[in-house]
């Protein structure tokens, strides 16, 4: 769609190297599906069908199908990325679930490189080793007092989602945090 302004300029991370690289990503959609105990089974089924998964994921994990991602963000909610709100609702009635379009509410930053874990540990008190945080983990936490969502796509690749209003500030913070890893 025309006339969009992004929260973070693509060029704001200018010191990337092989050890650590930060870059802006542009997901198409971000939609939350919130449901209730009465409708949980229906919603799990709809999600499982779309993402061709056999079991219901526990919170803290995500799966992907092509570009689309499905994150179990709470016991009573899913976050879908790159699935538009209409498709997200599908056949589920408003009685069964609340669909909230959050596509413009977040900025996304990819964090790539062998130094990712140490970089994240500058601020975040979570063990990001592969044993404790395997590929497919969805971590909801805060960085610099700002709530963030981290998805681990690969051993050396995370994508971070942050509220749009904080995005420029957090990007600056991250660029500064990254500088010792990116020096020399």
């Amino acid at each position: 769609m025309a006339d969009q302004s992004a929260p973070i300029e693509d060029g704001c991370f200018d010191r990337n190297n092989a050890k650590l690289s930060l870059s802006v990503e542009h997901p198409d959609h971000l939609v939350q599906i919130g449901f209730w105990p009465q409708s949980a089974a229906k919603v799990h089924k709809a999600v499982a069908t779309r993402f061709k998964s056999k079991k219901t994921m526990p919170p803290g994990q995500f799966v992907s199908k092509g570009e689309a991602l499905c994150i179990r963000s709470a016991f009573d909610a899913y976050l879908l990325i790159n699935v538009d709100p209409v498709a997200a609702r599908g056949d589920l009635s408003p009685d069964a679930c609340a669909v909230t379009d959050l596509s413009h509410s977040r900025a996304a930053i990819a964090i790539v490189g062998p130094a990712v874990e140490r970089f994240l540990n500058c601020d975040i008190a979570i063990d990001f080793s592969l044993e404790a945080c395997p590929v497919g983990s969805a971590v909801q936490t805060s960085m610099h007092h700002i709530p963030v969502l981290l998805l681990r796509h690969a051993p050396e690749r995370f994508v971070l989602y942050v509220y749009r209003s904080y995005a420029r500030d957090l990007a600056g913070w991250m660029a500064d945090m990254a500088s010792p890893f990116q020096a020399g």
Binding site: W36, P37, A40, T56, P58, A74, F75, D76
Partner: peptide
């Protein structure tokens, strides 16, 4: 433990 509707879904799972 969780409070609210989440608790019921959590216990179920």
């Amino acid at each position: 433990r969780l409070a609210g509707a989440q608790a019921a879904i959590h216990d179920e799972e």
